[in-house]
């Protein structure tokens, strides 16, 4: 099956985005995201890095549409993933840190899940899911249950589950961080190649700088409360200067302000 590249996913526009949470015990507000402005062009691959608790995961949840903004806007095209929740069915797909496969479903049935949710014809579901499992090298394991697969294989199934709907937007939250380096590198490469082939916009959230620099067209550095500390176009940096770039991002994260080398 050939992957149909569509006219192009819509751009992502984040303006003055704010997200507050109220602590149940103290009743105090915690600012998870504080007036974030960010634009992501169609088909861009953007890596978001930041320290633990900087609001990356909240941003991820807001991109999925599970959390509404407290203030500001997050639009994909002219629609909000939260307010227009149903509109984005089959248009946004996610890969999580853990594979999050349904243990009672075989690999094939796990990959079919998003297709079932969009109401695709059963025969078409089967063909598509099988195609994606084959593409991810799991053709011999279609009937295996998750507990019968290794961690890397399970994550491959999760990637197939995300790509099977050929989404406009792909979100990956620390998707390769728990795997060994060889498997992670291999899967990262596969993920990127497929994202580019599908023509999807991909946003990868990670705390690994190597990964961020290696995969992203852009690396966006979040400080506390998702304050945008740096927005780096990786292509502008020659490969031999990646070590300097990594150092500069490290400095930015540690000091919660942009390293002058990134400006």
């Amino acid at each position: 099956m050939n992957i149909a590249v569509r006219s192009g996913p819509p751009p992502i526009e984040v303006r003055g985005l704010r997200k507050l949470f109220w602590q149940a015990t103290s009743g105090q507000a915690v600012v998870a995201i504080d007036r974030l402005d960010l634009t992501i062009a169609p088909r861009e691959v953007v890596a978001i890095v930041g320290q633990t608790g900087c609001g990356k995961s909240t941003f991820f949840d807001m991109m999925i549409g599970l959390e509404p903004p407290t203030e500001g806007t997050l639009h994909i095209g002219d629609k909000s993933p939260h307010a227009d929740f149903d509109y984005f069915r089959g248009k946004i797909a996610t890969v999580f840190q853990q594979d999050r496969l349904l243990p009672w479903r075989s690999a094939l049935d796990n990959v079919k899940l998003p297709l079932e949710l969009i109401g695709m014809h059963e025969e078409e579901q089967h063909i598509r899911a099988l195609t994606w499992l084959n593409r991810l090298g799991l053709g011999n394991f279609v009937n295996a249950y998750p507990h019968e697969l290794s961690g890397g294989m399970r994550q491959r199934v999760a990637i197939a589950r995300a790509f099977v709907v050929q989404p406009d937007i792909l979100l990956a939250d620390e998707a390769f961080g728990h795997l060994d380096e060889v498997t992670a590198a291999e899967l990262r490469e596969t993920f990127l190649a497929l994202a580019r082939e599908c023509g999807s916009t991909a946003i990868l959230i990670t705390h690994q700088l190597e990964e961020a620099i290696g995969v992203g067209d852009r690396v966006v550095v979040f400080g506390k409360s998702a304050k945008l500390l740096a927005d780096i176009r990786v292509a502008a940096w020659p490969k031999e200067k990646y070590a300097v770039l990594r150092e500069a991002i490290q400095f930015t994260l540690q000091n919660n302000q942009a390293d002058p080398r990134l400006l």
């Binding site: 999925i64 599970l66 999580f96 999050r100 998003p114 979100l171």
Partner: peptide, 12 residues
């Protein structure tokens, strides 16, 4: 929660 979150991300 992880499974609930996962399936909700596909907008059932």
């Amino acid at each position: 929660r992880e499974l609930r979150h996962m399936i909700k991300s596909f907008r059932p």
